[in-house]
Design a protein around this nucleic acid. Structure first.
Lengths: 348, 348
DNA sequence: ATCGATTGCGCAAACCATTGCGGAACCGTT
DNA sequence: AACGGTTCCGCAATGGTTTGCGCAATCGAT
């Protein structure tokens, strides 16, 4: 209303009878400019509400103060917490976050990368799709001097900094807890063998069994392909109907654990008395399901914050060389589904 | 690697012995340029992989192909579906989405608006915080010729286009369903009276009771302030211990309904036989909770798509005048918590 | 031969902030 | 008086693209 056209440096210079460059330097307190001039210019700018044209600044400096964030799936509790952390951390440093999703489709991921690269982004945070193994599209990014950081779902075939969950340790602690509670025949519904996180969790599972000398049976390990409720249900049925059924089941994720719980309830098997159930990820559903589900919290928010801070630092230092990997510790959340020893509150 | 510096129009012009403007026009098939020249330029550009410098284009055209999206809370099933829809719709039109969250704090919302306005965004999609009543910060946007669209949580004090859930009708249908199932004493745990959605739902509730001539008791309406599980629990206790307890409870949202269910189970009251429970929003938890919760689906994805398409159209037409309101229809999802008549599958 | 219309293309400004470099003015030192 | 060192400030280029305007050439019509 009041101001129609935005005020530019040129306007200030004309009005104050100085050159544009003097105006520019005065505004940032450059030592070449006298205190008096600085004062006058700053006063004028403030009074007339001068705001630098960001588009022009970005153009000149060849950067945007935007960072790109690609996740497989936005409507997903874990990833939305990561995004939330990324946005909050970026905001603190004056960056915006442009979000995109790959739907676990490589082609969509490549397209998103291209779009980001073509324009609007100073750096990239990415959690890759299930279909991504190399990473040429991410390499393009690095080749243009724009840093890339992988988080959570990563590929080791591309040498970038990484922020990951300590899946191995998380799984180890989860299984150790089951052992501590007294379960001694522990099965594992694992994820796809091409996915690194799944392998790490499986390794943690095996290590714990070995360290505490518990029974290990290859047929107690089932590989989930889709990571959904139904697989949990079906595999649990298989396991419980086998000759040597387990008395605890450690699941690749809470959703699978939900299927496990559904089967066990249907089959009249008591949780946690007869069979303990452990999830992974600590989604909202873990609190809600009955019995409530023990799980491993991944601190998604912290992952988002850490990855974003690393990225922005690399952007600002033009650093695309270093390749450190940060592991965010997990946190075991014990609930009713594995609480054999003492069940203080009872189920609802 | 291969190309160090990006190819510019200037390079093409030099190489082909034409002027920069001819190169520019040739690339977009301007009628002033001969077919022959167009062919040559396009061929050269393709061969050398010319990509226009987006920063320069944006600067020149004074737009960014980014749209801003502000929600109260990102880690929230409904809002993440909206965001997902917005991103997908934006991608189709060549726009990016920059996401921010207000945490239901007015100050954060204002700051986010300012950041977006100062720079990086051609238009704004916003679902306001609980603390927002006027909307001066959004007005600033409009005054700069950048369209704003409100969705879901809106204020009528600011005259913008709106995309909203048909809360009234959704609530009406939900209560009608309860009546159809045979419940005749229906309570409502409503939301805050300052929030429009909450009022609409309450009106739909009252209208249904009136239309079907069911008992209406002011003390059956409880106002939730925080919209959480605990309020559901506490109010249900109050209701059920009163002299005239209801036999169905219609809740402002699924989370409140979860508290209702917890109390009823604790108190040994059968769902749905003794008391029916109806949620609103159809979160993931509605499927998971036991008994599964009937709810009203809000089609968040569709809201995101619709709002984004409207916004982009307004951006492209420089239209900040029209102020139409679009209502997205809801969809009743019946589950066990209200299935009095015939319970085919039984609870798990 | 002259005029008008059409086609094809280039000049230069515009967008706005930034910055290397050089000029001018002023000081103090020798 | 001459010189070097500061201080202060502006010129002009830079970045890449877009676009209004105008020039030049060609052709057909009279």
């Amino acid at each position: 209303m009041t101001e129609n056209r935005k005020l530019t440096l040129k306007d200030i210079a004309r009005e104050l009878n100085i050159s544009i460059s003097t105006a520019s330097r005065a505004l940032k307190g450059h030592p070449d400019i006298s205190d008096e001039t600085i004062r006058i210019v700053k006063e004028y700018a403030l009074k007339h509400n001068y705001v630098p044209n960001v588009l022009a600044v970005n153009f000149r400096k060849n950067r945007t103060f935007n960072i790109g964030l690609i996740v497989p799936e936005l409507v997903h509790h874990f990833f939305s917490t990561v995004i939330s952390g990324a946005i909050d951390a970026a905001k603190k440093k004056g960056y915006n976050v442009i979000v995109s999703q790959s739907n676990d489709i490589l082609q969509d991921e490549v397209t998103a990368c291209r779009t980001f690269l073509a324009s609007s982004v100073d750096g990239l945070l990415i959690s890759i799709s299930n279909e991504t193994f190399e990473g040429k599209h991410m390499l393009d990014f690095i080749n243009e001097g724009k840093p890339v950081i992988q988080f959570d779902k990563i590929t080791d075939q591309l040498d970038t900094p990484k922020v990951i969950v300590d899946d191995f340790e998380g799984a180890y602690q989860a299984v150790k807890h089951l052992i501590d509670e007294g379960y001694d025949k522990i099965a594992h519904l694992r994820g796809r063998s091409e996915v690194k996180n799944a392998n790490e969790r499986a390794l943690g599972y095996e290590k714990a069994l070995k360290d505490f000398k518990r029974e290990f049976q290859p047929e107690w390990i089932k590989e989930c392909k889709l990571i959904n409720e139904e697989e949990g249900y079906v595999f649990t049925k298989e396991l419980m109907e086998s000759e040597n059924p387990p008395n605890a089941i450690f699941c690749i994720t809470d959703l699978v654990a939900l299927g496990v719980i559904k089967y066990l309830k249907k089959a009249g098997i008591n949780i946690p008395q007869q069979v303990g159930v452990m999830g992974f990820s600590n989604w909202k559903l873990a609190e809600i399901v009955n019995p409530s589900l023990s799980s491993v919290d991944q601190h998604g928010y912290q992952i988002g914050v850490t990855a974003t801070e690393m990225l922005i630092e690399k952007i600002q230092n033009h650093d695309i060389e270093s390749h450190e990997t940060v592991e965010i510790k997990t946190n075991l959340v014990v609930r009713d589904s594995t609480r054999l020893s003492k069940n203080e509150f009872g189920n609802i």
